[in-house]
Each structure stands twice: as structure tokens, then as C-alpha cells.
Write a protein that binds this DNA or RNA. Sequence first.
DNA 1: TTGAAAGCGGTACCAT
DNA 2: ATGGTACCGCTTTCAA
Lengths: 342, 342
Amino acid sequence: MTSARITINDVAKAAGVSKGLVSLALNERRGVAPETRDRILGAARDLGWSPNPGARGLTTRRAYALGLILRRDPRTIEVDPFFPAFIAGVETVLSARGQVLVLSVAADHDAEAAAYERLSTDKRVDGFLLTDLLADDMRIRLVESLGMHAVSLGSPTADSVFPVISRDYDEGIDALMEHLISLGHREIAHVSGDEQMLHGRRRRERYEHAMREAGLVPNVIATDFSPEQGAGATKALLDGPRRPTAIVYGNDPMAVAGMGVAHERGLRLPRDLSITGLDGSQIGTYIYPSLTTLDNDPTEWGIAAATALLRLVEDGETSNVTLPPAGLVVRASTAAPSTGQH
Amino acid sequence: MTSARITINDVAKAAGVSKGLVSLALNERRGVAPETRDRILGAARDLGWSPNPGARGLTTRRAYALGLILRRDPRTIEVDPFFPAFIAGVETVLSARGQVLVLSVAADHDAEAAAYERLSTDKRVDGFLLTDLLADDMRIRLVESLGMHAVSLGSPTADSVFPVISRDYDEGIDALMEHLISLGHREIAHVSGDEQMLHGRRRRERYEHAMREAGLVPNVIATDFSPEQGAGATKALLDGPRRPTAIVYGNDPMAVAGMGVAHERGLRLPRDLSITGLDGSQIGTYIYPSLTTLDNDPTEWGIAAATALLRLVEDGETSNVTLPPAGLVVRASTAAPSTGQH
DNA sequence: TTGAAAGCGGTACCAT
DNA sequence: ATGGTACCGCTTTCAA
């Protein structure tokens, strides 16, 4: 089956008009007689025609595509519950508008910067979705200097001209800490994520705030968010001078790894050690004990981010979005500490 | 900083030649004097110019992009250790060639088919990477009828004109079964993945083959590969008439979920129940007990698939690729069965 | 070996 | 309201 390449000229011919008019009709511009409009659109539908984005972009200077660039160490790339659902959310917005997502993965900062530049100079995308924001993130200035649009997930520390999508975690972290404290925990440790990352740092700060509010002393080990370092941090804590009765992990994969360490040492969970994550992954439901965490909703992030970015690209409107705050999800991995030896 | 839009004309001017010649030089066509060639390429480099893929594709009929469409239930989209690393592999190949990956996520079969059609008719991609192959997969014929190129991960049951990337799992499954049997297990159950999916079915068949070879009777529960159904299947098996001493899960996330169920019932792993996965994820290293599984290497899949697809698109060469067979990775989740009551 | 010009599939402007 | 035409950035003939 040779799918006939059908173009705007075919539609024009079929509708008995000039191709300029077809363009006007398609783009819902005024100045086209209603009945002509219908005839044109009908012909387009009959022929199964939709405009070629490449040709279109040649004059409109648009790519009709959004870019997402992930920086990930290839060795630890695997576990991240956030992205698949996030991308699904982005897609629902894009596909409804005939747009497309260009995904790139970069191993390090240099490759990352190169990827932004390439997608930009090659006019592959109209804007970028900035995730995993770092403190003083170079990408803000980079993307700005490239003359590209963007939205960021979370508020950059430096000045940013881009719309911000955000969700409050402070409230959820407060609730989580209160939950642990009211169970009787005093030695509550935090295995924080990459402190370069804004949300990692922010969570750590709120944990510390909550601890001090309760008259307790914070106990933090920083990691890179990988299960590997999560496991290592757990061992360090259990062997350390201030052995915790509860550990709050910066993300769920680390919490799962931490449980592995605890089980390995013969601890009975949650009696001997309470464990929590911070971003509500599905797998947390099926591990044992099921994981107390905060809810998230990556799909919602994706929808909001893509919508805001498209508004910026198409209408030049910069509108921030605040998602509903993350709430506490109590499952089975937290309980009152045992009063036994330690 | 207004990044000057620099085009082929600027390069032509700088090199003192016509834009036609610039094109010839850039595309390494013969008939360009060596010294002119160098001058042109030098000018291009100085100006930081690379050709606009959209404009280019207008005449070459290429998108300089590859497409990957994932069909995933939004509710269970989260856990799949395969894709991030697979995509990273694809990316290493694409970025080196100035190409790009277009990623799409579809909720169901209809949306999936629509996505293939859209990326195809809009000339968004030059070919598709077909993953998660189903038995008698409609996509083979669909993509063919769209006149698009593709490669498939695994061999389609129906005739396919597309290159096939494959890796032998039979050998690894045999080794895994032998491992369990030699430990003394007789009641070895299999929680299989989606039987619609080719690799899920194939794995189940090999498990059954190995059981019969050993004079044992297969015991299979089919699932959709989700942790949720993995947990459910585990409960059914533990409550069933033929309570297994070992369970082979179709993928690692289900194995993790299965462990959760076992722990919940107070079983001591691996003494009371041996558990294995089948696709070597990183998280398997950090759970307790660490997971016996087969190794995989999604990045390798990605590199091979993208390379083969690009060869097909650019040179018309259809070359199958066979990756090294998956090997057994023995960790701590398998041991001799306890001889106690049951 | 090189230049000039047509054409790819659209959009946008200027007449009418 | 509609048609004609130039033009977007690049590739590809065809002459020279």
C-alpha cells in the first residue's frame, strides 16, 4: 500500500480554492466564508490531510514539539518512579494539540548542556520542561540565552523568567514528622537526596525545621537519591552513635533499599525501625511493610507543565501553577518504636 | 543575547560560494574541490551552523528522528526498569548522528494505533522502535501499511519485514531452573507476565519445558506484569493446593511485590520460599533478600535497536542483531527449601 | 568544480 | 472573501 503523499495543494484542488485559503481555514483565521471553510475542512478530512509540521515550522518558526532532557548516570538510570507517569501527563496535552515530545538523555553536565543547545539550534523544540531543578541551576540561564522558552518544576533559586509549576511539600513533611513524633519517635533520621537538587534540599530543610520545632536534633545523611547510596546511608545510621528508631528517606526507592538493609540485619519492621519515603510510588504498596510516604501525582505535574509551556510558547503568557499540596499517606512501615534494648 | 538565526546562506556568503555547494560539501558528496570543501566546513564551524532538519526533510523526506511509542495503563505506568536505560542506549546512537527520539505514551490499543498513524502522516519520524512485542502484533502490519520503517525487540510470530533484535533467554531460564532444582525444589511455580506479550509467553513456555524435562509438573499463574497482580498471584499460590517452595516471577517488580506478600505472612526468606525475577534490575540488589534473576542490559538493547533502525532508514539494509544470551545471576533470594511443616 | 534556479509543503502578504 | 505570489532553509537538478 503506497500511502499517497497528500499535501495542501491536493486539499485546495479538492475544495476548489487556493492553498492560501486552505491555510487560513485550517488555522481558524477570520476572513473565510463559513461555507467555504466547511468545504475546505471537509476535503481535508476526506483526504486525511494534516499539515506537515516541518514545512509549517519553516515559516512559523515553530517545531510543534517540546523537549525534555534528563541527566542521568547510565548506571543508576533505572529507578525513578516519577518520569513515566510524568511523561504520560505531558503526552495527553501534546497529542491533543498535534504536538510531540522530544526526549533526550544525557550522562553528565556537559552532555546535558550540549543537548539543550542542539535541540535549540536545530529548532527541534519550542521549549523545554525543566525537571530535577538544581540550586542555582545553570539551565535557567542557558535556556534563556538560547532564546528558548521553558517551564520549571519547582522554583529556581536564581531569578527566572520562566513559569514555575510547584507543589507544597512542607505541609506533608510536617504531617509526616508529626505522625512519627506522636508515635513516640525521638531519634528520627533523614536520608536526604542530592542536596544540589532543589527539592532534595528543600525537603531536608523542612525535616530539620520540624525536628527543631519539636525540640529534637536533626540527623541527616546526604545521598544522590540512588538506592545504592540509600542502602549505604542506612548502614551508616544503624551503626552510628545516634541509632534512629525512624528513618525518613528522600525518595521511595531509597526507602525500599533501606528496608532491605534492615531486614538483612534481622530487624523486625516496623517495630524495630519505622521507615518512610517521600514521593508515593506504586511499588510502595506492594513491598513489606507497605510504605508510609507522601502522595504525589506525576501525571498531574506533566499535564500542568505541558499546558503552561504551551501557553507560553503560543500566547506568550507566563502563568505559574500551584498543584494541590502533597498529603501524608500512612501505610504499614511506621509504628511506635519498641522499648527494647538497642 | 539574540542568537542570530544563521542559515546556509550565511555560510555560503562567508565561504564565498553558492548555497548549493555548501549543501554538497556538508553532505560529503563528491564533486567538491577539497580546498573549497575545507573552506566551507570551516565557515560552518566558525558560524556554529548546522542544517535545519525541518527544511532539510522537506526535500529529503526524512524527519531525522526515531519514534518510540509506549502503551501503558496510566495507573500502572510507573514501574518498568527497562525503559530509562533502553532510551539512554538509543540516545547515544541518535545524538551522535544529529537525530532525535520522539517519545509517545498511549493508554490503550486505539490510542496506540492513532499515535503510530499521527507520527507517520505528520512525518515526525523515519521509523519506529517496536518494544513489548505481542503475539501476532498488529503493529507490524500497521507500520508496514504506513510505509514506515521499524525494528522489533524480539521475533514477531507473524511474518515481518523488519529487522529483529533478540537475546536468548532460554539458556538463562534453563540455568535458573537447574539452580532451583539442584537446591532441592520440586514445587516450583511461575508467575508469568502478560501472555499476550511475546517474551512473557516465551518465558512461560521455557519454564514449562524445564519443569517437564525434570519430571515435574508446571504451575503457572498469568498476570499483566504489574506488581499488583504479582502480589495477587503470590497469595493465590501460597493459599493453593500446590503450595510452592520456589516462585519464578516474570519480571523483577512482581518478584519484589511477591516478597512483600511472603514477608507479610511471616515467611522467612529464602528459607521458607525461594524467589526469583527474570530481568535483572538494579533495585533487585538492594531489597532483602537480594534477588536472584537473569541479567539483561537495556542499554545494549537500545544501542542495537537504534543502530539497526538507522541502517535500515539510511541504507535500506535489513540486518538482524543477536545480543549475548541472558545469564543467571544468583543472589540471596534462593536457597534450599526448609524441610519443615507445610 | 561551481552557480543558478526550481521545488519541497506550508504561511503570509498584497491585490482584487 | 479569495487568488496569486514571495518566501521560509535546504536539496537537487541542470548548465556552464
